[in-house]
Amino acid sequence: MTFILFIEQLLNGLQFGVMLFLMAAGLTLVFGVMGLINLAHGSLYMVGAFAAAAVAGWSGSFLLGLAAALAAAAAAGALVEMLVIRRLYDRDHLDQVLATFALILIFSEGTRYIFGSFPLFLDIPDALSGPVILPGGIAYPAYRLAIIVTGLVIAAGLFLLIARTRLGVRIRAGEADREMIAALGVDISRLYTIVFALGAALAGLAGALVGAIQSVQVGMGEPVLILAFVVIVIGGIGSIKGALIGSVLVGLTDTMGKLLLPALFGLFMDNSSAQATGSAIASMLIYILMALVLIWRPQGLFGARA
């Protein structure tokens, strides 16, 4: 394994982690503020990807596709919150799981009805289609580098939103004591709708960005949703910092594990067995990481202690 390959995979892990952060940030906001288990968050990721692919294909503009992804996912999230989720806040978690699982089925079949069962493809914009030469002569895809930069900028914006704005104060207060801020005159229903739409928009943006790397298809959000839940368990529920650190840890662990473990096992067994064994263990690494973090800090790395 060469040094250049190692750095390229390190950047791939960072890009994967940043994409997970866009999913996990919205999920941890919703869970932290509302106490809601939202299994349909992956469907909003899918909505963003399909909206971006459809609009970009119609207009020829990738930026219009991204705008459509943000708008469609945010609108879908706000609509779902007002029509369905709002009735679940005072229900137990089993009711929330069942209702949001039903939303997964509705979104999947609705998307299949509108766009069909065949995958769509979103082209990388011409300006980002080539490689960027990094220090050391490393050629890395410009689009993947743009995803990393975009995710880090959004992370900084979220930190500022939560820490420095009036909306952020209300979000943090709603997480701490929703009854008190409602008694102080804050429209808690409107706040919940804004938070849910913000989380949905982030998920839709993640789907749109990844849609240019892989095909856009029905059900694409569920595997990412599982990883997003792993991220917020590792990082701590309700913590944006935890979502970012947890996402980067999961992305690097998954990507570097798939690179290094087959090579490590190749020192002790033949190539075919090493590849199979290393790949199998690499696929479990993120869950092993989650288990270790929970043993050390049951509330997650940056979660509040009970």
Rank of each mutant, 00 (worst) to 15 (best):
M1C: 05
T2N: 15
T2S: 14
F3H: 13
I4H: 12
L5Y: 14
I7H: 09
E8L: 14
L10Q: 08
G13T: 06
Q15R: 14
G17E: 03
M19R: 04
L20M: 01
F21V: 00
L27C: 01
V30E: 07
A40Y: 10
S43I: 07
Y45E: 00
Y45A: 00
V47W: 07
A52Q: 04
A52E: 01
A54Y: 14
V55W: 09
A56T: 08
A56D: 03
A56H: 07
W58K: 10
W58M: 07
S59A: 03
S59G: 00
S59W: 07
S61Y: 11
F62W: 15
L64E: 11
G65I: 10
A67I: 15
A68T: 09
A69Y: 09
A69D: 03
A71W: 08
A71F: 11
A74M: 12
A75Q: 05
A75I: 06
A78I: 03
L79T: 09
E81L: 01
M82K: 15
I85Y: 05
R87F: 15
R87A: 07
Y89Q: 04
D90M: 11
F101W: 15
F101H: 08
A102I: 09
I106K: 04
T111P: 01
Y113F: 15
I114T: 12
S117V: 09
L122Y: 06
D123E: 13
D123Q: 12
L134S: 05
P135M: 05
G136H: 12
G137I: 11
I138L: 10
Y140W: 08
A142V: 04
Y143M: 04
R144C: 01
A146M: 13
V149Q: 06
A156P: 04
G157C: 10
L158H: 03
L160T: 07
L161F: 09
V169I: 14
V169K: 09
G174E: 07
A176P: 01
D177L: 07
D177T: 02
R178T: 09
E179C: 01
M180E: 12
I181A: 02
I181K: 03
L184Q: 14
G185Y: 14
V186R: 03
I188F: 14
I188R: 08
R190V: 13
Y192C: 07
Y192S: 14
F196W: 13
L202V: 02
A203W: 05
A206M: 02
V210H: 02
I213W: 10
S215I: 11
V216W: 11
Q217K: 14
E222M: 15
V224Q: 08
I226V: 13
I232Q: 03
I234F: 09
G238H: 10
K241M: 12
K241D: 09
M256C: 00
G257Y: 08
G257D: 09
G257P: 09
L261E: 04
A263M: 15
L267D: 10
N271L: 13
S273N: 14
A274D: 03
Q275H: 13
G278L: 07
A282F: 09
I286K: 01
I286W: 01
L289H: 01
M290K: 00
R297I: 06
F302Q: 02
A304W: 06
